[in-house]
Design a protein around this nucleic acid. Structure first.
Lengths: 143, 143
DNA sequence: ACCCTTGTTTTGAGTCGTTCACGATAAGGG
DNA sequence: CCCTTATCGTGAACGACTCAAAACAAGGGT
């Protein structure tokens, strides 16, 4: 995979800065993070990062195509690296946990709607909703 | 169709109030409306509706299942009547216009993800993104 | 190696959409 | 018709994000 984050940044026409490298690296390890939790983690290495800087970095990365922004209902915007594959997401209605779903790539019958209402459709975004393993399990109130 | 809105409300265990009837009726005619535009329209018949009341009504209706709330990325929450059919939406990336998409009902091959990551999936929500007819057409800068 | 231009970060305030709290009001069963 | 209780209105608060301008640093030119 692209391990040279600095090169990725340059290729996208962005300057290589500490914050951007940190955010990119962090997103490699913790996908589906929102701005606030990214800042919290960044604090470990850079105690003075402001939330606005995080937003700056994220929106720069997002519009450069280095990062994908997803906005599930009822939660803040989440970011993840790599937008190459058209994968989708499952969101837990209980705890908000989110996981990737490798959906049918290439042929997607129901993703080609019958009537497009005159729209020129570019992308289809699928979000699955359900309960994650932890939330589905009956709570062990025993103790 | 269910034209008796009052009956719908009672069946859902909700009191029948003017505001609720108005909102329901309005959503019949103007689906995919957000709270603010609902209020604007409501002003015509009830000049004193507050935005909070609209939110009240909408969340009551939504949790009673009389109305569906959707939250496309980059826009405020939208509401529409009837959640019975599992239809989906196209959103115009240009102007934000939104239309219903009658997607495959019953069998939805790609809506049954291969690996569910341990989630017990309940629903699948599909959002198509593209350009509406108006936005796709080259702007007539002529004049 | 240094400077200078220009893109980035910071600081701080401001916005939008929504939610919370609570007194005022009205729905509708008795 | 009254009384209980759900609902509405008012006002404040909130989270997430955007805007503006001054301080700063990346990295090409010399």
């Amino acid at each position: 995979m692209t391990t040279d984050l600095a090169a990725d940044l340059r290729a996208a026409g962005l300057r290589v800065t500490r914050g951007r490298l940190e955010v990119l690296e962090l997103l490699e390890n913790a996908p589906h993070s929102d701005a606030e939790s990214i800042r919290t983690r960044l604090r470990a290495v850079d105690p003075d990062v402001s939330i606005q800087s995080v937003h700056n970095v994220l929106s720069a990365l997002a519009s450069a195509g280095l990062v994908r922004r997803i906005e599930p209902a009822k939660s803040a915007a989440l970011y993840e690296r790599r937008i190459g594959d058209n994968h989708h997401h499952v969101v837990c209605t209980g705890c908000g946990a989110i996981e990737d779903i490798d959906c049918v790539v290439g042929h997607a019958p129901c993703l080609t709607p019958s009537s497009t209402s005159g729209f020129r459709i570019e992308t289809a975004e699928v979000t699955f909703w359900g309960l994650c393993a932890a939330c589905a399990a009956p709570p062990p109130i025993a103790a």
